[in-house]
């Protein structure tokens, strides 16, 4: 008998009622929800990046992502609550072939991630883009390219110019960043904030064309505001 099902008494039911009414209010308040899918090879840091953005820190123990993980964070843009829902996907090929497809549906943006210390993860980018093209009928949705692990300065293997050329050729902005480096934590935020601004403006002005921002955004503290202000207002 030790493990009889816990019966919810009226108190907890009341609490539930309260909670559900809160949800309703929340729902009304949050008119905008943006779904963003994060893809790229295994181990490039997709989980760490999404975790950094949603929880504000670098996870001390990450594990391989199995299937799809979901994280979210609500931010405020122009006094409006905007919810960003990030779909963190498994990098291993077998998962993306059959499990991840479902999550490409209805996404508002795609974030491609490679590891700046690992050339092969950059070399895989065309196949990720191709895959994305296959799933997303709408080519207009914003995409951006993120080179992660920039804190490992001595081991950088992917040349910024090369990455920039690639990004340009696909009309994506490039961000080089680090999920790990606490000093640059704002930078990861800025990337997603930028995206959120873009999405929001896109929602307001339909018919906006694809995202194209020339220039590289390498990590520099004083650049952070640049992303949010300059980038969002001028280039979008």
């Amino acid at each position: 008998m030790a493990e009889e099902l816990p019966r919810n008494r009226s108190q907890s039911e009341q609490k539930e009622e309260l909670e559900s009414s809160v949800t309703v209010i929340e729902k009304q308040a949050q008119r905008r929800i943006f779904k963003i899918i994060v893809i790229g090879d295994s181990n490039v840091g997709k989980t760490c990046l999404t975790y950094r953005f949603c929880s504000g820190k670098f996870p001390d123990k990450t594990e391989a992502t199995i299937g799809v993980d979901f994280r979210e964070r609500t931010i405020e843009i122009d006094k409006e609550q905007v919810k960003l829902q990030l779909w963190d996907t498994a990098g291993q090929e077998r998962f993306r072939k059959s499990m991840v497809q479902h999550y490409y549906r209805n996404v508002h943006a795609v974030v491609f991630v490679y590891d700046v210390t690992k050339m092969s993860s950059f070399d895989s980018m065309p196949s990720w883009i191709e895959e994305c093209d296959r799933h997303n009928l709408n080519k207009d949705i914003p995409r951006l390219l993120v080179g992660n692990k920039c804190d490992m300065k001595l081991r950088i293997a992917v040349n910024t110019n090369l990455a920039q050329k690639f990004a340009d050729s696909h009309s994506m902005p490039l961000f080089e960043t680090s999920a790990k480096d606490d000093e640059r934590a704002n930078h990861v935020d800025a990337i997603f904030m930028t995206l959120a601004h873009k999405l929001k403006s896109k929602g307001l002005f339909t018919g906006n064309t694809g995202l194209r921002i020339p220039g590289t955004y390498s990590i520099a503290d004083n650049m952070v505001m640049y992303y949010v202000c300059q980038v969002t207002s001028v280039c979008f």
Binding site: S42, N43, K61, T62, E63, A64, Q92
Partner: peptide, 13 residues
């Protein structure tokens, strides 16, 4: 290679 990547991240277990 994939095995090594995953095992390196098995700390929690």
């Amino acid at each position: 290679n994939q095995v090594v990547l995953d095992v390196n991240r098995t700390l929690k277990r």
